[in-house]
Nucleic acid binder design. Structure first.
Lengths: 168, 168
DNA sequence: GCCATATTGTCAGTATACTGTCAATTAAAT
DNA sequence: ATTTAATTGACAGTATACTGACAATATGGC
């Protein structure tokens, strides 16, 4: 037997899932606003950073390093390639794989966008008191980590991927 | 002059924006998993709740009550109508407006899905200690509220909309 | 009453996200 | 070595999200 309680909007407003969705939208809006001078979305920025720190990574491993869906990432890579921020080169030892590298333009945009990204990230938490910012960030980091396996694409950090290297 | 610091993945992993995105994806995954018996997404659920608590609301005001984009909501409403969980009726006093009402099936699915939604919401925070759950939820609620105007579609709760009533 | 303005729903275009599938290719089993 | 498995990038289909535009309709100033 289901419930008989009157339904109010609190069923939505106080649900963590709703708050996470809302906060994510706010985060994207702030990122776009701060970084509108650069032709980069938050997802594209994360992908660029990962390619920058892992030159020659392939799409599947990139997906694990930033925890983005492999299908989605295909389109992201396409757009980054169209903007000439990255190049795709076929891997010599495995003809299925295409390796990803930053171009000069990609490295440049990454270098230049950093201050704006930092500003956007700061603005997201700015309304809170400094101590609360720290607390929230710590709890959020913890929660994302502990819920890692609950997402379709769990994060597999660099270390966990090294043994998958082609010539290891 | 931009920076010269070596870029690591921490530029991504520790950014609040990245953590919010990740947590939102986890939240959706848990919702879908718990509610797979019901043909409802998180967004559709929120819309249904709002229509349930505001029978005869129109799409624009619905968008303000759940803080979802008006364009996006059009498609959501379409799908809810296709599933016959809601109906759209033209407003008699304003021929631009279409009023939204729950169907019997819509009310039924809302009633039945509640326990699963609650379970999903609980699972999102479960990895944290109970005290930490409270803290995170409180800070998150605060942050979303204080950042309300930063999002493209700020939340306008019921109260703020009452004076817009047709026959007020 | 007429005209500038605002509102409403809709649509086209772009960008995440996820599910499921597929061909090509590689690796593993025996 | 040949069959079987798994992996890789790609694709089709669905569902959010946002931008910008549009026609139909209402509303306000005058």
């Amino acid at each position: 037997m289901p419930n008989n309680k009157p339904v109010t909007m609190d069923a939505v407003y106080t649900a963590p899932g709703y708050l996470f969705r809302r906060m994510q939208q706010i985060a994207v809006a702030l990122f776009i606003e701060e970084c509108k001078a650069f032709d980069l979305t938050p997802v594209q920025y994360a992908a660029l950073i990962a390619i920058s720190t892992h030159p020659g990574i392939d799409a599947t491993r990139l997906s694990a390093v930033i925890a983005f869906d492999r299908s989605t990432l295909g389109n992201v890579i396409e757009r980054l390639e169209a903007k000439e921020f990255i190049v795709r080169k076929p891997a010599p030892e495995d003809r299925r794989v295409k390796l990803l590298y930053l171009t000069k333009a990609g490295a440049a945009v990454l270098d230049e966008i950093m201050p704006s990204v930092d500003k956007a990230q700061a603005r997201m938490l700015q309304p809170l008191k400094p101590a609360d910012r720290k607390t929230l960030l710590a709890l959020l980091t913890q929660l994302v980590d502990l819920n890692n396996e609950a997402s379709r694409v769990p994060l597999r950090a660099e270390d966990a991927l090294e043994h998958l290297g082609k010539s290891g």
